[in-house]
Simulated assay, not measured.
Amino acid sequence: MPVSTEQTAVDAAGFAGRDVTVRSSAVLDLNVVKVRLMSNQEDFAGFSYFSAFADPATEADFEIVCVDLDRDPYDTEPLAAASDRTFRAKRFRTGFYLVHFFGAPAYLITRGRRFHVFGHRLEKTVWPYFVKYILTMHAVDHGMLHLKSAGFAHDDGSATLLVGRQGGGKTVFLAQACLAGADFLANTHVLVDDGVAHGVHTAMRIRADACFGDLIKAHDLTPHIESGDHVVSPHDLFEGRTTPRAPVRNIVLADFDPSRPRGLEETTPQAMTAFLTQFSSALTMYGLKDDLYDHCGKDLETYTRAHEAMARRLSRLVHGARLFRANVDMLDARTRDDTLARLAGR
Rank of each mutant, 00 (worst) to 15 (best):
H120P: 00
R23C: 10
A80V: 03
P269D: 01
H219T: 01
L185C: 09
F102A: 15
Q7P: 01
R91L: 15
A52H: 11
T284V: 15
V232G: 04
S281N: 12
D75K: 14
A274G: 07
D294N: 04
D329F: 12
S280T: 04
E266M: 14
M330E: 01
F101E: 03
E77F: 06
S39Q: 07
T339P: 07
A203H: 05
H116Y: 15
G263S: 11
A175I: 05
D155T: 10
G164C: 08
K132D: 10
H100L: 08
D11Q: 14
E239V: 13
M1L: 15
F47E: 01
I206G: 07
R85K: 14
V318I: 15
L323P: 03
V99N: 13
A106T: 05
G168T: 04
I225H: 15
K170R: 10
V3G: 03
P128R: 02
R249F: 02
H138T: 00
S158V: 00
R114M: 06
Q166P: 00
L98M: 11
K289V: 07
F152D: 00
A82P: 08
L28G: 02
T8F: 09
S149L: 05
A177E: 02
D70H: 12
E266D: 12
V65C: 13
P244H: 08
L161V: 11
L174A: 08
Q166M: 01
L162E: 03
L283H: 03
H319D: 11
G157E: 02
R85W: 07
A197N: 05
R313L: 05
F92I: 02
T243L: 14
T222R: 14
L323F: 14
L191M: 15
L331S: 02
A52F: 07
P128A: 00
G240A: 08
P105H: 09
L174Y: 10
A52Y: 09
T8E: 11
D70V: 03
L191K: 02
L108P: 00
S48T: 13
V248D: 08
A52N: 10
H224W: 10
P244M: 06
G151Y: 06
N327H: 05
H224R: 06
D155Y: 04
Y286S: 01
S281W: 07
L161P: 06
A106D: 07
T277C: 05
G157Q: 04
G157M: 03
M272G: 04
H116V: 00
G151P: 10
A282L: 07
N187A: 04
F184T: 00
T136K: 02
M330S: 01
H100P: 09
A326P: 13
F44M: 01
M272T: 13
E265W: 09
L69D: 07
V196N: 06
T243I: 15
V163Y: 04
D338A: 06
Q166A: 09
D236F: 02
A150H: 08
T58N: 04
V10Y: 04
R312A: 12
G213T: 06
G168E: 08
D183M: 11
A13D: 11
S48L: 14
V99R: 12
A139N: 02
T284L: 12
F212Y: 10
G119L: 03
T302R: 15
F184K: 02
A89L: 08
Q7E: 15
R249P: 05
R334C: 06
L108T: 00
G263F: 08
T284W: 11
R325K: 13
R305Q: 10
F47G: 00
T277Q: 14
R346A: 14
A9H: 13
H201C: 14
H138K: 02
K148S: 03
P73Y: 14
I109F: 09
